[in-house]
Design a protein around this nucleic acid. Structure first.
Lengths: 230, 230
DNA sequence: TCTCCAACTTGACTATTGTCATGTAAGGGC
DNA sequence: GCCCTTACATGACAATAGTCAAGTTGGAGA
């Protein structure tokens, strides 16, 4: 991707799009642009945060290694999404690690740059709070899923979120590894395989990375039904 | 609690303590002070946020009602803790509902008050980001627990967090209903009962609301051990 | 004081998920 | 082209948690 193209994508990101126009150029000029290979570490848990990260291309996973050694995937980001806002601006250690799960292009905004802009224009704080709130919200949604839905239902919702349309038949590509999907949904790969089988009766066909949903309403109904009703 | 006592507690809250001194008085003067009975609703999911809430006394639960009707407890707050920061400052709907689970005293800071202070002094943004980050962090920790630990291990960690000391023998009171503890830990009350029984061999005795831990290190070791090792 | 209700416990059973083992198939490197 | 690794599927079994159904108990209120 050319640097010009990178800048265009960066401007479209949720974070920069909500910032006042005049500051965007300042940020873009001072940002650090980097590529990562698949599997490369972007930062590690407990490391001190020095920047906010904006994904321009590829997929990034945030995860935590628990004391037992198990990996818990917290979120997966792609083009246009940013992470690390709240951490970077407080100079505290990251609560998670970040790793590129596909080749990635990432823009890093050094936190001092953002902090000095915040002092000039408090409007920026609100943009950053907006991004942070989005993360909070998605974590809350994830908690709800884990606490109130079965594995197969979480998979159903995951598939529904991949679709562009919102009713009828739909075909989508799974965006990343099934292993990672399993992690993201809080289950083992074996359980994901079985969850897919379980979704066959409600019109889901999986072939490699390709998924076909016969009827989104039927699937949504399944995802939102009481687990004990089945 | 007298209004003077309320103000003292409010000043000790994590949110206000990190704010520059001169603004605290402004906030305290414009805040709304209210009491809630056990079971009373503080706000509802989807309602538009108009204030930041600081708990002065009692316990508050934040929860989500999933499409299936199941309740997922997101967090439980008490004296000195605040919630709703990121939401209030963006005038978006709450992603959760809030309910007093015991008689409560709560201070509400209307969001316009906070917003206007933010414009005067961007330093305040950082304080608010700090509070928001704390919430993010606790949600991440919860996700990790749910994804990587068994029920009994989550209960063990919950008990450890209640203790003031960090080693040796310890006695604590359970701060709220076992039903709520179960919800907070993502399990059914029956499972919580059984988890308690399972903790007997590692030196945990529960009697009503009273818990005795024979040795915190032994319990911690249990909580952090690989589930498959048992 | 008595009654009643909701919280809690326990048991039996089921469902769901994890674990381990095995087999297959696809894709990268040579 | 081949090999070899890794992802993925599936079966058998174990562990864990949910469900349903009885109890028990302690406390609020009449």
């Amino acid at each position: 991707m050319s640097h010009e193209a990178q800048k265009i994508v960066a401007r479209q990101s949720l974070l920069l799009r909500s910032l006042p126009e005049q500051h965007v150029d300042t940020l873009l000029r001072q940002a650090v642009w980097r590529q990562y290979d698949r599997g490369e570490t972007i930062f590690l848990q407990e490391e001190e945060a020095k920047a906010v990260h904006v994904v321009l291309a590829g997929w990034v996973k945030l995860f935590r290694i628990s004391p037992t050694g198990a990996e818990a995937v917290v979120s997966v980001f792609t083009r246009g999404e940013s992470f690390g806002e709240a951490v970077a601006l407080r100079n505290v250690p990251y609560p998670v690690s970040a790793e590129a799960v596909s080749p990635c292009e990432i823009m890093h905004i050094p936190s001092p740059v953002l902090l000095s802009l915040m002092k000039q224009d408090p409007e920026i704080c609100v943009s950053i709070l907006a991004a942070t709130f989005t993360h909070l919200h998605s974590l809350v949604a994830q908690l709800e899923q884990l606490k109130a839905q079965t594995g197969a239902q979480r998979v159903a919702e995951f598939l529904l979120n991949l679709c562009d349309s919102d009713a009828g038949q739909c075909e989508v590509e799974l965006p990343y590894d099934k292993m990672l999907i399993a992690g993201r949904l809080g289950m083992k790969p074996e359980s994901l395989s079985r969850a897919f089988s379980r979704l066959k009766p409600v019109g889901v066909r999986i072939n490699r990375n390709h998924a076909e949903i016969a009827d989104m309403d039927v699937l949504r109904n399944y995802a939102e039904s009481d687990p004990s009703e089945k």
